[in-house]
């Protein structure tokens, strides 16, 4: 085992930021699903048209209120919980599919290789937002539709990386000796190839979560999100009141940027940490 480099500052700051966001999301989960509401009928920010567009700290609202008189802090929290849920679900699903297909495109028969390359190319050619919009119109504008749409556009990236990494690992002597003593393809994948390629893929998964959060918010911004609490949808409504309530857009952007910075810092830090050259 080679000497590991020390945990770098990027990972430290990034995990601190991410930890804060996770704690925030978790508190919101308890508040809306257990304290105020229940699993069958979770609590959602109440709207009160008389309290429209309060500025921060006015009338006891920490961040003020939005266009519908809902507490901006609560709306943001619901959006955070939603974004993190979407980001994690979609990244792990696409990574799972991508890793398996990437592996199969190396060890599988020729037809599998050709087919996976063709499908990957096809998905790369189309603007991913177009695919997402088309899939959403097929499945309907819902949470599951959104997950499906973003997984369809998300897995080819992982497949490409997984293919490259599998190719690299397959040439290593210990993998060749495993094959030589007759380890089957499934066991080879689960016990030998996967542990070798997973650390590198983990970097892409972490960075991918922020990518998914941005894609989802982009769709939300265009009015195609899976929830009214999507940060994109909130930003799109904040944009319409940029003159009257500029703080709304600023607060939303900053909160979103904080989460993305946290994810990117951890991803970059992990890459440096795992890089044998540094």
């Amino acid at each position: 085992m080679s000497k590991r480099s020390k945990i770098n500052t990027e990972i430290k700051i990034g995990s601190l930021l991410l930890g804060t966001y996770f704690l925030w999301a978790l508190s919101w989960f308890f508040y809306s699903y257990i304290y105020e509401g229940s699993f069958s009928s979770p609590y959602f920010p109440a709207s009160d048209i008389k309290k429209e567009l309060f500025s921060p700290l006015q009338d006891g609202y920490l961040l003020g209120t939005d266009l519908y008189g809902r507490s901006l802090f609560q709306v943001l929290s619901a959006g955070l919980f939603y974004s993190l849920g979407i980001g994690l679900t979609i990244s792990f699903l696409s990574a799972g599919i991508g890793i398996v297909i990437g592996y199969l495109s190396v060890v599988g028969p020729r037809s599998v290789k050709a087919a996976s390359e063709l499908v990957t190319n096809l998905i790369f050619i189309f603007p991913s937002i177009l695919i997402a919009i088309l899939v959403m119109s097929l499945t309907g504008q819902s949470f599951s539709g959104l997950v499906f749409a973003l997984v369809v556009t998300g897995w080819p990236g992982y497949a490409r990386i997984s293919r490259g990494e599998t190719l690299r690992v397959m040439g290593l002597t210990y993998v060749e000796s495993a094959k030589a003593i007759g380890v089957g393809p499934f066991r080879l994948f689960a016990k030998i190839v996967l542990p070798a390629i997973l650390p590198f893929l983990l970097v892409h998964i972490v960075l991918g979560i922020s990518g998914v959060i941005i894609s989802e918010a982009s769709l939300g911004f265009l009015g195609l999100g899976g929830s009214e609490y999507s940060w994109g949808a909130l930003l799109s409504s904040a944009k319409t009141v940029l003159l009257e309530a500029p703080y709304m857009g600023v607060v939303l952007s900053l909160v979103m940027a904080g989460l993305i910075i946290g994810l990117n810092l951890v991803g970059d830090g992990l890459r440096d940490y795992l890089d044998p050259k540094s």
């Binding site: 904040a238 952007s253 979103m256 993305i260």
Partner: peptide, 9 residues
């Protein structure tokens, strides 16, 4: 960290 739709506004 500021996607286009938050950077532009």
């Amino acid at each position: 960290s500021f996607p286009i739709f938050s950077l532009a506004p």
